[in-house]
Each structure stands twice: as C-alpha cells, then as structure tokens.
Simulated assay, not measured.
Amino acid sequence: MRSRTAAATAVALSTAAFLLVPAAVPTATATAAAAAAENRPRISGHRGAAGYAPENTLPSFDKADALGIDWVETDVQRTRDGELVLLHDRDLRRTTNVESVFPSRADRPVGDFTAAELARLDAGSWMGARFAGTRIPTLGQTLDRLDRNGQSLLLEIKQPDLHPGIEGDILDVLARKGWLDGSHVDHRLTVMSFGTNAVRTIHRKRPELKTSVLVTARPSASALRGYAAYADQVNPDYRQVSGDFVAAVHALKGAHGKPLETVPWVVNTASAAREVAGWGADGMTSDLPDMAARALG
C-alpha cells in the first residue's frame, strides 16, 4: 500500500496533467462547415411549399414547416368587403373551382368577390383529391398558423393598384395579430411588392419594418439607388441577373443603414440554387425549399 504522501503526490500530478490538456478545438472541417452554414443564403418556401401543397393555403405553410423551412412567402389581396385573403392571381380560375360555383363571374378579379363568397370555393382539389375542401385563408388566419408553427413571413402585396389603401389594412391586421412587436419586426417579417408606391407607403407608415422591392428585370444603377432609400432588399427573377448584380446591390446601404440585400425568386433546381448561392445572394425562394436546402448542403 502506498503511503499517504505518495498518494497525495499522485493525485496532484494527475490533476496537473488534466489541467494541461487543451480544451477541444473545432477541426478545420467543422469550422469551415459552420462558416458555410452562417453564409448560406436563407431558403424561403414560395407560397408556402407550393411544389407539394396548394399554394398560399394553410396546408402549404404546414408542409413547409414539416420540411424544416422557417421562412415562407405569400401573396395578399383584398375582397370587395375588405377582408385580406391569400391569392396570387388576378382572378380565381387557376387555383379554385370558381368556374363551377360562380360560372358567370369566373373571370372577375379577386376584389369583386366578398369574403363569404370566397369561403365557398375549393382551393385545393386542383392539386389532388387529398387537398379537397382546402379553403382560401385570410391573412389573420395565416398569421395565427405561422405563429403556431414558429415560422417567419415574406408578405407580398399583390397588385396594390387594384386595392387602394390596402397597405393600411395590412398594417391593421399585423398590429391586431401582434406582428408589429419588436420580435416579429426585427426577425420574422418582411413586406414587399412589385408596386413601388406600396413599398414606399409601408416604409412611411411603419419605418421600422423591413421592406423589399420585387423586380422582373435587372434595374439600372439609378433605380437601385432609389430603391435603397425606402427598401432593405431588391428581389429579382433569378433568371434575369447574375453575380455582378448581387455585388451592385451589396455596394449600397438600404433604408435601415445596412447593406442592401437581394433574395432572388423562384429557384426550383439544385443547379440554380447553387448558382444563386455562388453569387453571394442573401436568400432565395423556392417551390421546393427542401431541395434548395439540400443543394446547399
């Protein structure tokens, strides 16, 4: 048996050796992977997860959530009686059974229908029998669902010229649903439109909100500078731009004094996702957001 002194010496040496062992250091591979994840463009589900479920419906947002997609994009319009609803097209023929329910009015714009009339339409069967009976959701219902899912929102004001004053209506619903608090405004909401007047109006009414201008073609340098005065992003059709466009966007400061961002749309192939990421884009939207995420590792 060792003496008490020898045992104490052994313990001291053992403790000293332990203290000299360096803490675990991330490997070069782990560090590179973490950096890549930090710099990877954010993937947002276009109209929810429109490649898998009827666009702009609650099942589509739920599908995006099931795929692990935290951000979704959607389109908002206004009914004749003032309800805000989610629809992309000017009329209802492509994504509902309006031709059966209202055959004489099938080609009429969304704003010619009341909320009660839209509630009668099937907005899911066109994409498969399992979606039969899916309804057009209101903006309020959508915000509740996204809160339940913990998702964030790119909210597009669709055809604002057909819905004068819709900007104020949207802000009212966002406020009523708690989406104008600091947490949502800072981290979970961007309001955007092809209508620059609508984006300016949102910025003027609620300058703390993050805003985006959508474009179908590459804007000129002077147009980019103009957008930067009231928007935080300029989001193009990815097929119309390239890496030099992304660099030109990032060279400017947006409405909140941070580098102007760009989130191209709609990226539906792995090769396109990798190409857009290679440009250094800040994000992208996709009907197949899980595919885009896998393509970026």
Rank of each mutant, 00 (worst) to 15 (best):
G178K: 15
R94M: 05
R80S: 10
R120E: 10
A8G: 07
V72N: 04
V25D: 10
R94P: 03
V11L: 13
L87E: 03
L118H: 04
F18C: 12
R294Y: 10
A132P: 11
E275P: 10
H163E: 15
V234Q: 04
F194H: 01
Q233D: 12
A293P: 12
A115P: 15
E99M: 06
L143M: 09
R47K: 09
P164F: 04
N149V: 07
S193E: 06
A231R: 03
A132L: 15
V267N: 04
V11K: 10
G45S: 02
D122T: 05
I202P: 07
R204A: 12
L174N: 00
G297K: 02
P164N: 06
G280V: 01
E73C: 01
N56W: 05
A277H: 00
L58F: 05
S220P: 05
R105I: 03
A49C: 04
E261L: 13
P164L: 07
D89P: 00
G168N: 08
T9K: 15
D290E: 15
E73I: 00
R2Y: 09
A8S: 11
K205D: 13
M192Y: 00
V266D: 14
M127Y: 14
I136G: 09
L154R: 15
G82C: 10
E167C: 01
F113I: 06
S3Y: 08
